[in-house]
Amino acid sequence: MHEIHYVWQWPVRICHWINVISIVMLSITGFFIGRPFMTAPDTSLYIMGWARMLHFSFAYLFTVSVAARIIWMFIGNEHASWRSFFPWLTRKGRAEFVEMLRYYTFTGKHTSRGIGHNPVAATAYFGIFILFIFQIVSGFAIYGQFAPGGLWDGILGGLNVLVGNQWLRLMHHGVMWLLVGFTINHVYSGWLMDVKERTGTMSGIFSGYRFSARKDH
């Protein structure tokens, strides 16, 4: 028998899927901007223009989504809370973290069996949020170069001087690849836990509901 829990509230799910779409679009258009792999046969086309327009539009969408998710960390349920991203702050969290890590490394037999983020995943998501914020900040800093003295240049232009605009570009590009690596990891782990834990890991991010074995003791 299973108990059904409402785990992922709708703002969490919406932000998740907006992030997915944004990251896919931003990675494709961003890669194209860095390395234009299509060449226009004639001047009437506007390929780079559209790629940049899409990149900047999805950048704004992604920024709003990440900001909304961060705000929800202070409003939403315990699984959405900022506390869930720091499992190692509690003794129980630390124990579950070790248990989960042992499961992944084939040295333990059991997963941590929570219904929210598993503690290893939660720690990774904390890192991912840092990367998201880095991408947003570095992206808008180099975007702002088109209008010196404008809004983004005023807010973030100092970074171009402090770090150097070419290093910012290199890091913005490098972090994209880290996020590609993360996505592979994320989908794989989701699949693995869906198969092994059978708590609705995969369907949970669509429906919001996950299951847990009823504790009979």
Partner: peptide
């Protein structure tokens, strides 16, 4: 940066692929 990035992505995919195959055959979990 792209060569390194593609290498990183490929290494991640291979590593998790192997982990996945191993996970399919593990017993007692």
């Amino acid at each position: 940066a792209d060569k390194i990035g593609i290498g990183l992505a490929a290494a991640t995919a291979v590593a998790f692929g192997i982990h996945g195959v191993a996970s399919c055959f593990r017993k007692g979990d």
